[in-house]
Amino acid sequence: MTNSRKIRGYLQQAWLVLLLAGAYGGALAGVQMTLAPRIAENRRRETYQTIPQLVPGADRERTVELWISDREGNPARVYRTHDAEGRHNGWVLPASGPGFADDIGLLIGLDASLKKLTGMYVLDQRETPGLGDYIRDADFRRQFQGHAADTPIEAVKSDPQEQQIVVLSGATVSSSSVCRIINTAIARMRGPLLQSQAAASAAGGDAREQEL
């Protein structure tokens, strides 16, 4: 009895908040459903524009979007890049993961043999302005070029050795998050991509991957 009276009391107090939360939630779901395809298309366009920066010599017109099963068997989007003559010269992996404030979305460039990182681009971030948002800067991103793809990259405060990058001052979490996202994405996709490449070359060098 007491409990039901308590609940009735709460509802009398909070009915407006509950009603508004439901109405706003529905409105936001509608907005998201309406605008999501357009936002996805904008992101796709930006990805294609960035590909020549991520894989040197890549021709964005000849880039092929593929869906490959990752290490856990989940479908993942990858971009197979080609030069102007149509020769396969690299891969671009979209990846995301938690940063300091929100998820960070990255594009990771790899060479055709998946041995070396060729570039990194920040597609999405909401890190602290003036600190963490410097992960977008070319100087920070350039540090990732040339690192081996089969060994994790580590973020250090100073004196970087092989497979290490220097964190941004005041933004250790954001810098380390970028490293973690890159390491996770490569660990997740490198094996399946190598397998798919081997299968393609076994089938006569045909560059068409099985689409899921």
Binding site: V31, Q32, L35, R38, I39, N42, E46
Partner: peptide
């Protein structure tokens, strides 16, 4: 969301 869709 509107800005991300129309003024990306």
């Amino acid at each position: 969301r509107f800005l991300a869709a129309y003024l990306y």
